[in-house]
Design a protein around this nucleic acid. Structure first.
Lengths: 137, 137
DNA sequence: GGCTGATCTTTACTGATTCCAGTTTATGGT
DNA sequence: ACCATAAACTGGAATCAGTAAAGATCAGCC
């Protein structure tokens, strides 16, 4: 888990200004993988005082655009964020409680791209969402 | 494309009552694959007069539960419905305009299930969403 | 034809997310 | 260090898909 200084460095390296909300959001997401926006807002406020919900939304968007975060949005659930970027892992989602975990899935990306291009699409990204029940549900 | 009589039969076979809104919704989805709820509502009203939006939502849910329809919901887009059920094809989504097409993707489902179970999940379903740009975008 | 629970209609509401207008703050150039 | 400007932030209100509730209707069965 990155320290606050690490988060500041990550922001700077991404060409983003370093602000208190940004550092807080970034470290909150590191601390709570797959958390939804509301959880992140609460974590940020606990860690560093008053931050408007709008600021959190803006920051999440900015960090996602800057590829410091990845947004995942399973069907029927609110958006979640994770700090693990740069690899292409996938997710399992619990149909009962919405819990999410990372999994590895092997996928014929070239074939998918070929099939997409046959349908008239230039595809560049594939995401697998596996669903089922977690241990508790 | 099924006729109205076919739709009635499909409903009956699924153990559902045959009503005007249900027949309309089912044939609207057959006529507009990957349509969103709003499009379906408009198509239904054009075809068969006044139907409340709530009825359409209810019918879509009932038909989806009865496996006559399949609901797909790509990240960040509203829910779509398609009448092609019973196989497990996947989708490409255009990041520009939200257009959706069917594609074939080969996927190591057993491996995915194994990886999910390692994470504590009993997985029973996997969906691949490929994204990119369609010809127009 | 009459019964009964499933369906529909109407209307209101929820909750996530976004928009907007105005204010504050960080950063690059001097 | 100082200024100007672009980027961020605040707080409130709007939007929009989807859900809820209550009463009116209707399909399927006798």
């Amino acid at each position: 888990m990155p320290t606050q200084t690490d988060c500041e460095r990550l922001l700077r390296e991404a060409g983003l200004r370093v602000t208190r909300p940004r550092v807080s959001v970034l470290s909150a997401v590191h601390a709570h993988p797959h958390a939804d926006t509301d959880t992140i807002i609460r974590a940020v406020r606990q860690g560093s005082g008053v931050v408007s919900h709008q600021a959190v939304y803006d920051v999440l968007k900015a960090l996602t655009d800057a590829r410091l975060l990845r947004r995942i949005q399973p069907a029927g659930l609110v958006a979640r964020y994770e700090a693990r970027v740069g690899d292409n892992h996938h997710h399992v989602v619990c149909r009962g409680c919405g819990a999410i975990e990372d999994i590895e899935v092997s996928l014929d990306l070239a074939g998918a791209r070929r099939s997409a291009s046959r349908a008239g699409f230039a595809a560049d990204h594939a995401e697998v969402v596996v669903s089922g029940l977690c241990r508790k549900c």
